[in-house]
Amino acid sequence: MLSSQRKLSEAQCQQIDLADDAGLQQRKSFDLMSKEVGGRTNLGYTRLDQKNYLRKRRQRSLVHGEAGYLLQYFQRKLVESPPFYHAYQLDVEDQITNVFWADAGMLIDYGYFGDVFSLDSTYCTNSSHRPLAVFSGFNHHQRAVIFGAALLYDETTESYKWLFETFLEAHKQKRPQTIFTDQD
């Protein structure tokens, strides 16, 4: 297929979007769509066209930057589930430094099983090498549950103070009996 003859229709774009939103791998969604039309030659575009389309769509969604996209995501979650809780801390230049969130399930689980939890800060989980802090515990079936999560700018006392205060605010000031953490 010559590039001048290849074109994604509006319907094909919607199918690609649906497959991507459902978590289907690009290769598998391309194979599925080509089978639907009787082969790759009848599809009208290549896997590279599909990959380029998805990349452009993601770039358009990040037009406000990572922080803007994150805040838009939080707003959508809040509309879908009003108990969703999120908070962020700004520095002196009004830049987001720390972000905390807990969905409705996390809030409910903490209400039942939040007497003891573990706080783990994992490094190098994003491109900026910022700590990801996860509050976790166990339910009555000995299965791990998460009570909240945060992306921190650094591991200073001020960041952790903000994190624990925000965690308590999210969980209506219910304090745990025991907190497990690493030696730091």
Score class of each variant (00 low, 15 high):
residue 124 C to D: 10
residue 111 G to W: 12
residue 103 D to G: 14
residue 129 H to R: 14
residue 125 T to S: 04
residue 141 H to C: 07
residue 117 F to L: 15
residue 110 Y to A: 00
residue 143 R to V: 07
residue 132 L to H: 04
residue 115 D to V: 12
residue 146 I to Q: 10
residue 148 G to Q: 10
residue 123 Y to V: 01
residue 128 S to W: 12
residue 97 T to N: 08
residue 136 S to A: 13
residue 142 Q to C: 00
residue 134 V to L: 13
residue 111 G to M: 05
residue 127 S to Q: 15
residue 128 S to F: 15
residue 101 W to T: 06
residue 117 F to P: 07
residue 141 H to M: 04
residue 127 S to T: 10
residue 107 L to G: 02
residue 118 S to F: 05
residue 126 N to F: 11
residue 107 L to E: 07
residue 122 T to G: 00
residue 112 Y to G: 06
residue 133 A to T: 13
residue 134 V to K: 05
residue 116 V to P: 01
residue 127 S to E: 14
residue 111 G to Q: 13
residue 116 V to Y: 08
residue 118 S to T: 15
residue 120 D to C: 12
residue 129 H to L: 06
residue 126 N to C: 02
residue 126 N to P: 01
residue 118 S to K: 04
residue 138 F to P: 03
residue 126 N to M: 11
residue 137 G to N: 10
residue 102 A to R: 05
residue 123 Y to S: 00
residue 112 Y to W: 12
residue 97 T to R: 11
residue 105 G to D: 15
residue 133 A to M: 12
residue 127 S to D: 01
residue 100 F to E: 05
residue 133 A to N: 07
residue 103 D to K: 13
residue 139 N to V: 01
residue 144 A to L: 10
residue 145 V to L: 03
residue 121 S to I: 04
residue 99 V to F: 14
residue 127 S to M: 14
residue 137 G to W: 11
residue 121 S to T: 15
residue 98 N to R: 07
residue 143 R to A: 00
residue 115 D to G: 11
residue 103 D to E: 14
residue 136 S to P: 03
residue 127 S to F: 06
residue 148 G to E: 11
residue 107 L to D: 01
residue 121 S to G: 10
residue 130 R to I: 04
residue 141 H to N: 06
residue 144 A to K: 11
residue 103 D to S: 10
residue 108 I to Q: 12
residue 103 D to Y: 14
residue 99 V to C: 14
residue 142 Q to D: 11
residue 132 L to T: 00
residue 98 N to K: 08
residue 143 R to P: 03
residue 137 G to I: 00
residue 123 Y to W: 14
residue 105 G to N: 15
residue 141 H to Y: 05
residue 120 D to G: 03
residue 119 L to I: 15
residue 103 D to Q: 13
residue 147 F to R: 06
residue 117 F to Q: 01
